[in-house]
Write a protein that binds this DNA or RNA. Structure first.
Length: 192
DNA sequence: CATGGGATTGACT
DNA sequence: GTCAATCCCATGC
């Protein structure tokens, strides 16, 4: 997808990324869960302003932002909005498509819904590390491609944060078993 | 230069 | 339900 796709309000991009395909090497998956982050709210790393760590977030749209979480996991984001605005979409879960056996080896689990059902899980399954920070998502080693049919989307509040917890900036593909837990309330009510 | 915290996960009670 | 693992970096002295 071209940089223009990301040069829009981060909430629009987060919603439109659900259903798109992420590819790295032999492995790929369809995005089933995203979260939006923006410099205007305190859960976003860019809230602190431009620092060596956050400079990627303020860079041109369409770049990757990969950072280490809890000293253990690499988390993958897509930088959005015009250069100078700090915003990104966190890729939280995928439905595995290609290279599933390789994902199983990397993750050490067999179940398809356990391979990529979390932001730290999917980077491990796809082999995405910190060295892929600030790479081009349209022509770089990580490629994000367009979706087919538009999926039905369920919105909820973001997961695992301590500030601005009330914002409904999490977007899930309705009924997908590959979404990370806990599922949004609107999705638990009825099976799919 | 020392310190503390975090957009998580998996193992355990 | 609780808790530890583990490291980059922001912050403060």
């Amino acid at each position: 997808m071209n940089p223009e796709f990301y040069d829009r309000p981060v909430l629009e991009v987060a919603r439109d990324l659900v259903g798109c395909t992420v590819t790295h090497g032999q492995t790929s998956g369809v995005i089933v869960e995203t979260e939006a982050y923006h410099q205007s709210e305190p859960a976003c790393h860019a809230y602190a302003g431009v620092t060596p760590r956050t400079s990627t977030l303020f860079g041109p749209p369409g770049l990757s932002y990969v950072y280490r979480s809890y000293g253990i996991h690499a988390l993958l984001n897509a930088v959005c909005e015009p250069e100078g605005v700090g915003a990104a979409v966190l890729i939280r879960a995928l439905e595995p498509r290609a290279g599933i056996e390789l994902m199983r080896e990397r993750r050490g689990v067999m179940g398809q819904t356990q391979l990529c059902s979390g932001p730290g899980k999917l980077t491990e399954a796809l082999g995405i590390g910190l060295h892929l920070n600030r790479t081009d998502l349209s022509g770089g080693p990580i490629a994000i491609g367009p979706r087919g049919a538009e999926p039905r989307i369920v919105a909820g509040t973001r997961i695992g944060i301590t500030r601005a917890v009330e914002l409904p900036w999490r977007f899930c593909a309705a009924g997908s078993p590959h979404v990370s837990r806990p599922w949004p309330p609107a999705m638990r009510r009825r099976a799919a």
